[in-house]
Simulated scan of single mutants.
Amino acid sequence: MDQLEPEPHPRDLIAGLEKGLQVIEAFDQERSRLTIAEVAERTGLTRAAARRYLITLTHLGYMRHENKQFSLTPAVLRLGQSYLHSARLPRIVQPLLYRLAYSLEEAASCGVLDDDQLVCVAAVSAGRLVSTTLQPGTRVPAYCTANGRILLASLPRAKVDNFLARAEPEQITSHTIVNKERLALEIARAGEQGYALVDQELELGLRTIAVPLRNFRGETVAAMNISVHAGRISAGQMVERCLPAMLKIQVELGALL
């Protein structure tokens, strides 16, 4: 929601829809199968309410029920596909992302912030599948990704401070920066230099460089990155080889967004 718009009145909100979506979001990579009691615990619903939502979602085809456990079905992907097919950003970015990826012969992707996570909305592998996270719809922590860091750098200082205050960085790899003071410095550095370079903080062997994508008003609306295997290209070589091409695409997209 636009920050200039007032908060909606509670009577204008449909609580059932909100809770139904919370039930869907209770399932993730770590917990792909849940019982009624587990869904109730993860959503704050009563067992009776959780049961009704799960039965309804099963009836609609979004869940399957087996051995007292529920799991999501592929029908849930329709929700994400609706965004990818209807949203303006992926449609505009994809052709230029394709050109960038194949000109450099590297994988490229575009992402946006969703709360404290980075969501991939477009990706081109260019024949190099360096990470399974570089797929439309995937969600990864913003603090340890190049796209996430450059997007955080575009936020007002107060929002960055709030992000760091509530963040609980995990040591995903031996390279992951978890110290909040150092994270603040890395975010500030990304903003000052106009790009973020993250070296194996999300996955070992994955090195990524990202730039912000701004609309014609100068507002940052997304981020674009190039990802390589760390064994092939050094950090310095990435900046020298990839950044100029990325900045050209950045300018072209600025006239379209």
Rank of each mutant, 00 (worst) to 15 (best):
V130I: 12
L97N: 09
L100P: 09
S227H: 05
R51W: 04
G254M: 03
E5S: 13
L13W: 11
T145C: 13
A40M: 10
L77G: 14
D115T: 10
H175N: 08
G127P: 06
S227D: 06
Q22E: 15
L202G: 01
E186L: 12
L243R: 10
A210C: 11
Q193R: 15
A153G: 08
R157D: 10
I14W: 01
P95K: 07
L104T: 02
R232M: 02
I249Y: 03
S71P: 02
K159D: 13
E181D: 13
E30A: 13
P244M: 03
L152F: 07
L206Q: 03
E106L: 11
T35P: 07
T58M: 09
Y83L: 12
T43F: 15
I24V: 14
H65K: 07
C110A: 15
E201G: 05
M238Y: 09
Y143G: 06
Q237W: 06
M224L: 15
Q94A: 15
V39D: 03
E41Y: 06
N162C: 00
V140M: 14
K68L: 04
F216M: 09
K180D: 02
S82K: 08
A190H: 03
R166M: 09
V160Y: 02
E168W: 00
N225H: 11
A190C: 02
R78P: 00
L60F: 11
L57H: 09
P8I: 11
T133G: 00
E186Y: 04
I14L: 08
R99L: 14
E38Y: 04
P141R: 10
A196T: 07
M1V: 04
A146S: 15
S103H: 11
V121T: 15
G61P: 04
L247Q: 15
A87S: 12
Q22A: 15
L17E: 14
D114K: 07
A108E: 13
L256K: 12
D199N: 08
A126Y: 10
S82E: 09
V130H: 03
A101W: 13
E5V: 12
A75R: 14
L34E: 07
E66T: 12
T132D: 11
V198R: 06
E170N: 10
E38K: 09
E203I: 08
L79H: 05
H65I: 00
Q81R: 13
E7L: 14
P8T: 07
Q200T: 06
K19C: 04
D161T: 08
L257E: 07
R78S: 12
Q94M: 14
Q117R: 13
D2M: 00
H9T: 06
E219W: 10
F216H: 13
Y53N: 14
A108K: 11
E105T: 06
R91Q: 15
L197G: 05
D12N: 15
S234N: 05
A50D: 06
E201S: 05
V93L: 08
K19L: 12
N67G: 03
H59V: 12
I14Q: 07
T46K: 11
H59K: 14
V239D: 10
Q171S: 14
Y102L: 09
R88S: 11
E5R: 12
A87D: 10
E201Y: 01
L17P: 00
L21V: 13
M63C: 11
A190M: 04
I233L: 14
F216R: 14
C120A: 05
H85M: 12
L57R: 05
E105N: 13
K19M: 09
A158H: 11
Q69S: 09
N67W: 03
